[in-house]
Amino acid sequence: MIRMVNNYQGPWSLLDDLVSMQDDFNRLFDDRNGVSRFGRRSYPPVNVWQSADSVIVDAELPGVDPNAVEISVVDGALTLSGKRAGELDQAETVHQRERQEGEFSRTIQLPYRVDADKVLATYRNGVLRVTLPRAESDKPKRIQVKAA
């Protein structure tokens, strides 16, 4: 479960990871560091919320330029895609490499049809929030019953 990709053991170690038993335990249950690249778990992790009028999708995308994320809505599904760049190019020596990098794409089925022209996206502290208003044509309508 613990991945130490490229775990460099030099002639002397600059940084030793003090991973406690507690951390190991948590990793077993909260394996959010992912495997190298975006294997096994879908990326990015999302929370989806809904009300009668709109859907909110919060995606954890730390360090990703929000303008470089492609957000598209097709047939009641939201797709987020983009690229997460690594920062290892400026390195002389890589000691530890756990952060995910590379291209990602994830499609989320929405609970109802949305108005693609009114989708709003904000980005704060590495979390992308996409707000998708329900399509007018999809909203439940109350039919007035006329008294006889």
């Binding site: 600059l14 940084l15 991973v19 507690q22 951390d23 948590n26 990793r27 249950f29 909260d30 959010r32 560091n33 992912g34 690594g86 920062e87 290892l88 400026q90 390195a91 002389e92 020596t93 890589v94 000691h95 530890q96 490499r97 756990e98 952060r99 995910q100």
Partner: peptide, 14 residues
């Protein structure tokens, strides 16, 4: 609800 070990990259520069 959880304690989480964040992913870290460690690189050495000059």
């Amino acid at each position: 609800t959880a304690v989480c070990t964040p992913a870290v990259d460690i690189v050495e520069r000059r």
